[in-house]
Amino acid sequence: MNMLDLIPWLAAVLLAVTSTGVLLSRDWRWNLVMMAGQYFSMFWLVMVHWPLTLSSTRLVTGWMAIAVLGATLTDMKEDIETETSWPGGRLFRAIAIWIVLITVTQATPVVSNWLSGAGQPVIWGGLALVGIGLLHLGITARPLRISLGLLTVISGFEILYASIENSILVAGLLSLITLGLALSGSYLLIQAGREITK
């Protein structure tokens, strides 16, 4: 294995680290920074199958989505989305992530049979994001967390799907969905904030 082969693995590991950070951190600022890193790693993995110009749409849309959420949260009261019970539940979340990552590692060879040309790091990275995103959705009911969880799941799916589909229409529609998720998440956050500040 030469150094170039290691680059996708590096991106996959970075994905796991950033998505873990999103789940463990309770400060929304750190969450968004981690999400930005997640989209960068995703862009890296998508570039294995898509040309640079097309894969950069993933990065740009992802960062735009984060900007939308960030702009909404900046205007809101400090305590709305910054959870204060830290470090309660940190150990539980860490163990859950560990279980998810082990499961993903086990599942990667199986999924490789379906997506034979995708490559192990792409499959591992995509599945890790889907798994951690689902975990995120399973343990929270807060609008910001739900948005981040959905964005994570969809990012994982996009990484996997990029290996089998390179249509420009699909890339465009998936970008719209990413932005739509951020906008609807932002709308839910604003509504939740209004209710709290009433």
Partner: peptide, 22 residues
Amino acid sequence: ALFIEIAVLIAIPALLMPGQRP
């Protein structure tokens, strides 16, 4: 499936009553 998902996202504002917590 992609168009249906976009439709879902667009429907969200209509489903939340003004001033109501999701």
